[in-house]
């Protein structure tokens, strides 16, 4: 099973994503509500992939991508954000994010995005 973690400041979104993750071939190894927690857990657990919110307190998603890429540039990051403006998403991908999903999203949207993320893992 592939290790994955969820980063979002909203507990509702974290729960929703976690539920969908458990139905897929992922092993949920972490669950963080801001970038600082996320980086800390990432270092400990070294997951292969993570879902990441952009607007978060303390350390935002963009900064988190940079930190995580510095630790492991093979990590796959799915940006899950309501902040869907193009410059931000482009920036996220430039920094190393592998995909994005705009809030609000359905379970099916999330599954599809995760499948693509997984496919990416196998390819890469």
């Amino acid at each position: 099973m592939l290790k994955i973690m969820v980063v979002d400041d909203s507990s509702v979104i974290r729960e929703k994503i976690s539920r969908v993750l458990q139905d897929q071939q992922f092993e949920l190894v972490g669950d963080a509500k801001n970038g600082i927690e996320a980086v800390k857990q990432f270092k400990e657990q070294r997951p292969k992939a993570l879902t990441l919110d952009i607007t978060m307190p303390l350390m935002d998603g963009i900064e988190t991508i940079q930190e995580i890429m510095a630790i492991d540039d093979e990590a796959r990051i799915l940006v899950v954000s309501a902040l869907a403006d193009k410059p931000t998403l482009i920036k996220a991908i430039q920094l190393g994010a592998s995909g994005f999903l705009c809030k609000p999203f359905s379970d099916a949207d999330l599954s599809e995005a995760l499948e693509e993320l997984l496919e990416d893992l196998i390819d890469g």
Binding site: K86, P87, I90, K91, I93, Q94
Partner: peptide, 9 residues
């Protein structure tokens, strides 16, 4: 600027 970043990608 955004277009520049986009084309770079």
């Amino acid at each position: 600027q955004t277009a520049r970043d986009f084309l770079e990608l």
